[in-house]
């Protein structure tokens, strides 16, 4: 099963589809995931995911927007989709019956502001 950060990367790549590459994925992780993401963590994890066969990466043609530099494009493979789905379903299953697993708005965590 994938780890939490691997799941975030798979999700960001899936969100971006054909436009998935390092800087764009980091933007998605930081804005939608609400957590900081260094390029080091991103590329090391991408290498690991690629070694597991969960993503495929390749170099794009250089673009003017990036000062004539290429992008490392990312695509989630079928195995990657399966692994992300497994992780997601495990989180949903294990969260059912918990305070945070209930539908939003109905319950509050003990520490939540009133």
């Amino acid at each position: 099963m994938v780890g939490e950060f691997e799941f975030l990367i798979l999700s960001a790549a899936a969100h971006l589809g054909e436009e998935a590459y390092g800087a764009a994925m980091r933007e998605v992780i930081e804005t939608k995931g609400g957590r900081t993401c260094s390029l080091g963590a991103l590329y090391i994890t991408l290498d690991r995911l690629e070694a597991k066969g969960l993503v495929k990466t390749w170099m794009s043609a250089p673009t003017q927007q990036r000062g004539g530099r290429a992008k490392r494009m990312v695509r989630v493979t079928r195995e990657g989709v399966r692994a992300a789905r497994e992780f997601y379903q495990a989180v949903i299953k294990i969260s059912s019956g918990t305070v945070w697993g209930e539908s939003r708005g109905r319950s509050r965590l003990p520490g939540d502001a009133a």
Binding site: Y21, G22, A23, R26, L39, Y43, M59, P62, T63, Q65, R66, G67, R69, A70, K71, R72
Partner: peptide, 8 residues
């Protein structure tokens, strides 16, 4: 790749 990501 990294310098390109940082440039944008």
């Amino acid at each position: 790749v990294v310098l390109g990501d940082l440039a944008e």
